[in-house]
């Protein structure tokens, strides 16, 4: 009897945590898939309808959402990570007032997404924005980036990078600081330049962290709603109508919960596939290289 209890006790102890995880993580995912394959009338779930809900994603509008999401995520990833690495290297250097500088560059992290979006929208406002005013006063030209497709996407990426680079910076800074100084000293004795130190020591050693940062940022960017919702509302002409915003709008403006769930499933699967690709490509192979 005692043996049974002692064998079962780990599972019994895990049960509350497992139930909570099931309730708040697994159940919503399973439910999302369930709704995605059923007809809906507002919140009421109807009959199984095969993949009909997914068809709405493969029209011209859906394709624009895929394209907008790809541009937004890739551009934001590249810029945020590059900026984080650049600033991490800068802040790692023995600068005067380094502490103050570190505090300042972290400020955007303290600002909520809503405030970030409103702030950038105000900055870029074609009537009252300071940038529009400067453009008018200095060059006599109008400046309305949110009014055209390329400008709106660029503005959204800039706002998103501004908001999210400090997170990447913290992790990259920690990774750079964890590299033993002896490695740099040895390299210098061997006559390595600063660029070679960066190329052959800093970047490879921080590569694992960069990979993790990239995965986390990608996950976040794929599910971001607040910034496109406030800054552009998906426009103009659906140029910034990200899949994440489509999930929201299909559910809460159009009341097409089936379409919304189908889009949610696609975003979930994209996240899953990207995570697997990243891990296979970088974590396993890249990790092994670094360890060698």
């Amino acid at each position: 009897m005692n043996t049974i209890v002692s064998r079962a006790s780990p599972y019994l102890l895990l049960t509350p945590a497992a139930l909570i995880i099931f309730a708040i993580t697994l159940y919503p995912i399973v439910n999302l898939f369930w709704i995605a394959f059923h007809g809906t009338n507002y919140f009421q779930i109807g009959a199984f309808n095969g993949g009909a809900n997914f068809l709405s994603l493969f029209n011209a509008s859906g394709m624009r959402s895929f394209m907008a999401t790809a541009i937004f995520v890739i551009a934001s990833d590249i810029l945020a990570l590059s900026l984080a690495i650049f600033l991490a290297l800068l802040l790692e250097a023995p600068l005067r007032s380094r502490g103050l500088l570190r505090t300042i560059v972290m400020v955007p992290w303290l600002v909520s997404q809503v405030v970030t979006a409103l702030l950038w929208q105000a900055m870029l406002d074609s009537n009252f924005g300071p940038l529009a005013h400067l453009a008018q006063v200095m060059f006599g030209m109008s400046f309305a980036p949110l009014g055209d497709e390329v400008g709106a996407m660029a503005s959204m990426v800039v706002a998103n990078v501004w908001r999210s680079y400090p997170f990447a910076l913290v992790l990259m800074l920690a990774a750079l600081q964890s590299i033993p100084s002896e490695m740099y000293e040895a390299a210098r004795i061997d006559g390595a330049t600063r660029w070679q130190e960066l190329r052959y020591i800093s970047l490879p050693m921080a590569g694992q962290t960069a990979l993790v940062v990239l995965i986390l940022l990608t996950f976040e960017y794929l599910t971001l709603v607040t910034i496109p919702f406030i800054m552009t509302s998906g426009g103009p002409n659906e140029a910034t109508y990200l899949l994440s915003l489509r999930v929201w709008r299909e559910a809460f403006t159009n009341y097409h919960f089936g379409y919304s769930a189908a889009t949610g499933v696609v975003v979930f699967c994209l996240n899953l596939v990207l995570a697997l690709v990243y891990i296979r490509k970088f974590a396993i192979k890249g990790g092994a290289d670094v360890q060698r």
């Binding site: 406002d125 074609s126 009537n127 009252f128 109008s142 309305a144 949110l146 009014g147 055209d148 709106a152 552009t232 509302s233 426009g235 103009p236 002409n237």
Partner: peptide
């Protein structure tokens, strides 16, 4: 009417 109106909301127009 300016050609950047695609992005303007009611609040933007009211503010203008």
């Amino acid at each position: 009417t300016p050609d950047n109106i695609s992005a303007l909301t009611r609040d933007n127009v009211l503010d203008a």
